[in-house]
């Protein structure tokens, strides 16, 4: 079926060029030798060297990774529980409020979430810092995890659990031996989503953080406000490289598994 017209091809190509060109330019110019960011002065990796000598940026990166790791992990547990509560318990007191609270942070402007969390921390007298940023990130990322896991649970064949119980496994055992392993891929992608969201977040971290817990986006932001610098280009390129590598590896692994699976299924059909 040749319904892919020239207009379709052109619009897809232009759309993807628009999506990728700014990032590509940023990566190219991170290898620019000139200190004037927009004037090409030859290829160089000097800014990467500068970057690793910049203790402030390195510290911020370390804080960001730790916050991301801890918050993603806790958010994955809480988000999975929330998804289970939403799909498995159709009737409990305050369910409407609960599902509202799970879905609202997805569309809530970050400035509001950040402000409200900050005011909470002040009201209860919690010193702002690493701990409060982590709490804030758990709260807004757990909702994304809940949505990802809930989508998987909706398509989950409940007869798998019934079969396990029918074969003698009590509910808790059924959950750990059957339900959890089957929804694990969704939980892992939920974790990855939470981790990236935490790494990326500027606004909520700015509100929730305090002295001594500056995250990488906050650091980058404070320098970016003063203008484009080659060092920041280099930092951004590294971040893009890490994320792109992660996503590519994940999708290649997935793709290979999918291909293997299809091959197996075809082989089984031939045998059957």
């Amino acid at each position: 079926m040749s319904t892919w017209t020239r207009f379709n091809i052109v619009s897809v190509v232009l759309g993807f060029a628009f999506l990728y060109l700014p990032i590509v330019l940023l990566i190219i110019y991170s290898f620019n030798d000139s200190k004037l960011v927009t004037v090409w002065g030859g290829f160089s990796t000097r800014w990467y060297g500068e970057l690793f000598r910049n203790q402030g940026l390195m510290d911020a990166a370390w804080v960001t990774l730790r916050v991301g790791f801890i918050s993603a992990t806790v958010a994955t547990v809480l988000g999975t529980l929330a998804a289970l509560a939403l799909t498995r318990y159709t009737r409990f007191r305050g369910r409407v409020l609960f599902s509202g609270m799970v879905f609202a942070p997805l569309v809530m402007p970050e400035v509001i979430t950040g402000l409200s969390l900050l005011l909470l921390f002040v009201a209860v007298g919690l010193d702002r810092g690493f701990f409060t940023v982590t709490l804030a990130h758990i709260t807004f990322t757990m909702c994304f995890v809940a949505v990802v896991v809930q989508a998987r649970l909706m398509s989950f064949d409940r007869s798998l659990e019934e079969a396990a119980m029918d074969l003698g496994a009590p509910p808790v055992k059924t959950f750990f031996q059957v339900t959890l392993p089957v929804i694990l891929p969704a939980i892992i992608s939920g974790w990855m989503l939470a981790f990236t969201l935490s790494l990326d977040d500027l606004v909520i971290a700015s509100f929730a953080s305090g002295p001594g817990a500056t995250t990488l986006p906050m650091k980058i932001y404070s320098q970016v406000r003063l203008g484009v610098t080659p060092e920041i280009n280099a930092a951004c390129t590294l971040m893009i490289a890490v994320v792109a590598a992660g996503v590519l590896i994940a999708s290649v692994v997935n793709k290979r598994r999918e291909v293997q699976r299809q091959r197996d299924e075809q082989a089984a059909l031939r045998l059957g």
């Binding site: 999506l19 990728y20 700014p22 940023l26 927009t38 500027l202 980058i220 484009v228 971040m239």
Partner: peptide, 19 residues
């Protein structure tokens, strides 16, 4: 894929283009 790269970086990339 772009969604996985930092929002801040994507906005920042345009600063170098538009100034």
């Amino acid at each position: 894929l772009p969604f996985w790269t930092s929002f801040l970086i994507r906005v920042y990339a345009w600063m170098g283009i538009l100034k």
